[in-house]
């Protein structure tokens, strides 16, 4: 799998590597870092924005964004938790991202949950409270309206996004291998 994939390099020192193997760009905007949990071996690329400060208004510790292992937040992607009016006041809800999730460059994510093995293409807009189940592909330039549910093994495309195809049974292994291989290839010069 991916025997000829080119190596993605970055200039040494532009990324911070954590103990658990996360690679976070120094030029990524991460607010409210204490409210963000990264599972390890995830990559957050240059120019992306993670809004951990948009937390529930009540007192106490609240996790805003959780992310699993081998995830990729592409360049310029924006990840922020969804929010809505509830019982007369505006509150944010946590955003949960599982393992092996790739989010393409310049996409905007406001989903409620993203299952494992999900690939979101570039320039996508994932609306508030969207639920993406395990193993799904959102093709580039797709717009998913608020509250859309994306079932497992489906391919979505268009504006507004529609179910256009189903995935082959081998997709899970392919996606996991792809995410791992990308992590291996993403290294300092």
């Amino acid at each position: 799998m991916g025997a000829f994939d080119p190596i993605a390099t970055y200039e040494k020192g532009t990324y911070i590597e954590t103990d658990t193997g996360n690679k976070v760009s120094r030029k990524a905007t991460i607010t409210g870092a204490t409210n963000i949990i990264l599972g390890g071996k995830s990559i957050i690329q240059t120019g992306s924005i993670l809004r951990g400060d948009l937390r529930r208004s009540t007192a106490g510790q609240h996790v805003v964004i959780t992310m699993g292992r081998y995830c990729l937040i592409g360049e310029g992607a924006i990840v922020r938790p969804p929010g809505k009016m509830y019982k007369g006041s505006f509150t944010f809800y946590p955003l949960r991202i599982s393992d092996f999730v790739q989010i393409g460059p310049n996409s905007i994510i406001e989903a409620a949950s993203i299952g494992s093995g999900v690939e979101i293409g570039k320039n996508c807009i994932i609306g508030k409270f969207v639920i993406i189940k395990d193993l799904a592909v959102i093709l580039p330039d797709t717009v998913l309206p608020e509250g859309t549910v994306v079932p497992s093994m489906s391919v979505w495309s268009g504006n507004p996004g529609k179910l256009v195809d189903t995935l082959p049974e081998t997709y899970q292994e392919a996606m996991e291998a792809k995410c791992k291989s990308y992590y291996q290839r993403f290294r300092a010069t």
């Binding site: 025997a3 082959p168 081998t170 292994e173």
Partner: peptide, 21 residues
């Protein structure tokens, strides 16, 4: 769930061929 009880796919039997370089 998303798991398959039985999954007999060719990718587990035939070598994967890729072309490049």
């Amino acid at each position: 769930s998303i798991r398959m009880k039985i999954k007999m796919v060719a990718a587990n039997y035939l070598p994967l061929v890729e072309i490049g370089r």
